[in-house]
Design a protein around this nucleic acid. Structure first.
Lengths: 242, 242
DNA sequence: AAGTGGTCTAGACCACAAG
DNA sequence: TTGTGGTCTAGACCACTTG
């Protein structure tokens, strides 16, 4: 009888087990983890499987591996669950900070695309797009003001107003039958004008982070373009380099 | 005779070959890549090796893989060589933008640590640190103003003034015998004051990106803390989500 | 049903770091 | 020299997508 059940991939189960042991401090933070061979015997899986699990932990930044030496826990990382990927899922980012995320729809309209939107989305000028203006709240404090624009043509199913509260990637999946494959983002700094101050309550002239994003599917078709204004005073953007 | 020479790891050679074919447009961007089995026969390596090479390409965002379907090229990504990792190597970031990077040392001093520095570096108050104030230029245009602070105690060898022009991670390696294992960064927006304007020439009141970083070695010992001010008007920070 | 990528195994050898 | 992680192979079966 082993600790492993078939269901999730074995490598993933091993990953979860080891991650649990690390965060529960079952391994001394200043010492090596057991060797790959020892783990493969204990958990009764092949060494290759142990290796993929450890590779995942290393990719997450939780451990560092050194050839000829061993696998070490990165003790300062244990508390930081916001890896870089988290930048993109605003609701998750807010949750990780220990607060409750709420998405508030400020407006939604079907309208002709503006030139730069048509350009980003590869649409003819004045093609119809759905423009979604939303506000992300953390415990009722506004933190991110977001405008998403997607071609009206890719919407396949009628949607209820509540659907507009979904994270945009989920909306794409559910109502457009589209999964994104990759995204490109420009990160920059901006300054709150009267309108942004009105929405985010940061004060006119205060600095804000800005993300300009475009999401593509695996065929390279643009799905959404977005502009996000981020109040870094209310929600710290802490990332990890592994 | 195969295309593969033993020297670099085979998986890496395969990766380079495939990457080359992709960026040279030897595979049609709208079609699948050859299957894993086909590639393993063509290049005379095992399927597992092909898989690690393809996994790397997918991690870089260059391709997307779909079970039961195939491996596709992400055509919008081919030109973007600045993956997220690039954020941290400023000289590389500048090179990727097609300009020549220069590091200019504005000042270097041995001085007692300020409280927040001692805190970040885990040092007793007023312990000696080396504070390095530097400016990164792209084709002689200032783009990043950087202050690095490291404990004087970890410096093992005397260094010539030229050594201070090295990227900080290289300096750590060469003169402190230290390799970093991971780093934590806070990304935020700030506003240029008189001093920053004087250095970066952006205009007082203009927005800047700011990175606050701490680098750790694999034992969890802090090596450097840094504050960087980044002029996003002169050097676009474009990142990729894979 | 056929073909694709995803997972897993067992065993081998190599490169590196430590004592 | 020993033990660690790094690389590679050959072969098997599974899960998924597409025609």
């Amino acid at each position: 009888m082993s600790l492993i059940e078939r269901q999730k991939p074995i490598a993933e189960q091993v990953h979860d087990i080891l991650r649990g042991r690390i965060v529960q401090r079952e391994y001394a933070v200043d010492q090596r983890l057991p060797s790959e061979e020892a783990l493969s015997i204990e958990l009764n899986v092949s060494r290759a499987t142990i290796r993929t699990a450890l590779a995942t932990l290393a990719a997450e930044g939780l451990v560092t591996r050194r050839q000829g030496d061993g696998t070490y826990i990165n003790k300062h990382v244990i508390e930081i669950n916001t890896r870089f990927e988290g930048i993109w899922e605003f609701t998750q980012l807010i949750e990780n900070s220990g607060r409750k995320p709420v998405i508030q729809v400020l407006s939604d309209q079907l309208r002709p695309a503006k030139p730069h939107e048509a350009d980003a989305l590869g649409l003819p000028h004045h093609a119809l797009v759905l423009a979604l203006e939303r506000l992300f709240l953390a415990d009722s404090t506004p933190v991110i003001y977001s405008i998403n624009v997607l071609p009206q043509a890719i919407i396949q199913k009628p949607y209820a107003p509540e659907a507009l509260n979904l994270p945009i990637l989920r909306f794409l999946d559910q109502y457009c039958g589209q999964q994104y494959a990759y995204a490109v983002a420009d990160i920059s700094a901006s300054i709150a004008d009267e309108m942004l101050n009105h929405i985010l309550q940061v004060g006119v002239g205060k600095p804000l982070l800005r993300f300009d994003e475009v999401f593509y599917n695996y065929e390279g078709t643009p799905l959404v373009c977005a502009v996000n204004h981020y109040d870094d005073k209310m929600l710290r953007l802490r990332v990890l380099r592994g």
